[in-house]
Design a protein around this nucleic acid. Structure first.
Lengths: 167, 167
DNA sequence: TCAAACTTTCAATAATTATTGAAAGTTTAT
DNA sequence: ATAAACTTTCAATAATTATTGAAAGTTTGA
């Protein structure tokens, strides 16, 4: 496998993994491209490389900036805008985990809390609903907390945490 | 909020969260319905409750069984098949985490390993590709390991782990 | 102030993914 | 062996989601 093959394989694999953290293919591919690039890329560069339209590139870059994992780079003397992504995997993971938590998990935790707080009318089905949604609420909340704590131990969090954990 | 409202809210919220662990809406809703049901449900029951077709119900139940979170229940004297889901949240989380790892994460880890193992031809871009995909490989592999270890500590894993972790 | 260089927006369209429903398949009781 | 009761399959269709491209918007330099 040479450089070009490896690059294509990486970008497309990372793209298809987008679903894992809830972003679309083009968004994930743009991020992948920036992640292995040695210098900032312009919209033109990205469009050409991924063979996607200008509009698509623009919209997905905006989303990546909203997520906080891509930033605009001004290159002196250049008219075009250039883009870079966070290059540190730890920091990247931290940002992604936080954003997913904020956007998707926390709202669900709220619903679980509301649902599990309905008045117990004494019927079996109500008791079951309360019991099960409460269990789900507790699990989700604890898991969310844990991920955020893990991910916020900036230095080498995964390795350190693992050591502590797996006695 | 009464029982019926709470039930609808729970089922639809859980359905929309399906994307979080990579299953579709109907699948997640069926699981949600079974999760709060006091007794096993037939295909008929599910179709009626969620207002989805027989074919859809059948296909999604099969998938849930493939994931190992729903099982067929034979009720003596009954011709129909009945279904139940794993009721223990811990066990549910364990199964889901394992399946996702097997289906999606491990294959990506393999690609990252292959890509990061290409021959270093000395160019800057190749060095960067190798460096970045290797970092991603290591992170992904370690995170995957950790989740699987966490999730396999059957008894109260989250709480226990948290205690150990967050000094 | 103008126009060239560039970016954003968004309605139209394409691609993907989910859902239906009816025919085919299976199981069970008699 | 048959037919009723039930489940599965899958081609057609619908719903959703992503993508395009051209017009509108913005910024910059002369």
């Amino acid at each position: 496998m040479n450089y070009d093959e490896a690059k294509i394989k990486f970008v497309s694999t990372w793209g298809s993994l987008g679903s894992l953290w809830g972003i679309n293919k083009a968004m994930a591919q743009i991020q992948a491209l920036l992640f292995i690039s040695t210098q900032p890329l312009s919209m033109e560069d990205i469009m050409e490389d991924l063979k996607i339209s200008r509009g698509n590139t623009s919209m997905n870059l905006r989303q990546l900036m909203d997520w906080g994992i891509v930033t605009k780079e001004i290159i002196p003397g250049e008219r075009k805008e250039y883009f870079t992504t966070e290059k540190d995997v730890q920091e990247l993971a931290r940002t992604i985990a936080q954003e997913r938590s904020r956007r998707e998990i926390r709202p669900v935790i709220k619903v679980l809390k509301d649902v599990s707080s309905i008045k117990d009318d004494g019927t079996e089905k109500t008791k079951e609903l309360i019991k099960q949604t409460k269990a789900l609420h507790d699990l989700t909340e604890t898991a969310d907390d844990m991920i955020n704590k893990l991910v916020n131990q900036k230095q080498n969090w995964i390795t350190k945490s693992l050591l502590k954990l797996i006695k």
